[in-house]
């Protein structure tokens, strides 16, 4: 049964790895892969000696971590709240409303945020001014320090409902008898959540965590690309944008490949470390 998927994996995930040789060449298109000029580690040298590289590494890790933490916390929160809701109608509607944004493309979502955060007629400025919290409208998207916040919270808005689905399904797998037993022992609602629900989804949580740690260098692309502007570029440029600007756009495929290899190697190291750590703590592991 798994065969087609394995083949798919081989064709689309393993065969392209051959392209890694590009990173050690000065690749020019319309010429065979092996008819290229070999340059050794030159592309990596250029990459690591670019001052922008370290800033971009910082931004990528920071935004990915923010998104990981906020995304996970809020997904679990939504899942717990939905799980505790008795009314079937309320459950359904909350779930649907909260996961719908997931299907909105970032192009649309970014425009929504541009409007919400607008200093001219944006709803956020209007609300804050109506309550007297701020006096003058704030140019939210123009302040470098706010950019990571905007990325984090817009991610929560868009993804927390969808992320909650997997936790919700883990919760339904918990044996209801345990809850009944707890009731009889006089556990209150918060105690039930604390001692039954949360431990019940721990395995799922750890597996997801390990997998997400592997994606720490994928802080996203469209989200930053569409929300950034010149003012905040020191905080908004991530790896993928850098690769596009200085690699693909300039047809420096080799340079892009070198950056890609760096990314993959770091990701593999991160995954295995997270896995080892989980194993050492006696938790569920991935590999």
């Amino acid at each position: 049964m798994a065969l087609p998927f394995v083949i798919h994996l081989i064709i689309f995930r393993y065969i392209p790895i051959v392209g890694w040789v590009m990173a050690f060449q000065d690749y020019k298109p319309a010429r065979g892969l092996f008819a290229q000029k070999w340059v050794g580690f030159e592309q990596f040298r250029i990459l690591f000696s670019d001052l922008a590289f370290y800033r971009i590494l910082r931004n990528t890790l920071a935004m990915a971590a923010i998104k990981l933490v906020l995304g996970t916390v809020f997904s679990i929160l939504v899942a717990v709240l939905v799980n505790e809701t008795r009314s079937k109608f309320a459950r359904r509607s909350v779930q649907t409303i909260s996961y719908l944004p997931h299907f909105v493309s970032w192009v649309v979502a970014a425009n929504i945020f541009l409007n919400v955060l607008s200093p001219d007629s944006g709803i956020l400025n209007n609300i804050l001014m109506a309550f007297g919290i701020i006096k003058e409208p704030v140019l939210w998207l123009g302040v470098p320090e706010y950019f990571w916040h905007i990325i984090g919270w817009s991610h929560v808005w868009k993804e927390c409902g969808f992320g909650a689905i997997i936790y919700l399904s883990a919760m339904t797998a918990i044996d209801p008898q345990i809850y009944e037993a707890a009731d009889i022992d006089g556990a209150r609602r918060l105690q039930r959540i604390r001692y039954i629900t949360l431990p019940g989804i721990k395995a799922t949580f750890i597996i997801l965590l390990i997998m997400n740690i592997g994606h720490l260098l994928d802080a996203g692309f469209e989200q930053q690309y569409l929300l950034q502007n010149g003012l905040v570029q020191d905080y908004s440029e991530v790896f993928t944008i850098y690769i596009m600007k200085y690699g693909l756009k300039m047809m420096r495929y080799s340079y892009a490949a070198a950056a890609g290899i760096f990314k993959s190697v770091v990701s593999i190291i991160l995954i295995f470390s997270a896995n080892r750590l989980a194993a050492r703590l006696g938790e569920e592991t991935l590999v």
């Binding site: 010149g230 200085y246 300039m250």
Partner: peptide, 26 residues
């Protein structure tokens, strides 16, 4: 020419201008 030294330099200049032009005005 794509990927040439002048293209890389002008992209870097552009990055600096993108950041500082608004800062100058503000």
């Amino acid at each position: 020419n794509t990927g040439s030294a002048e293209e890389i330099a002008s992209q870097k200049i552009k990055d600096v201008r993108d950041k500082y032009t608004p800062l100058l005005i503000m």
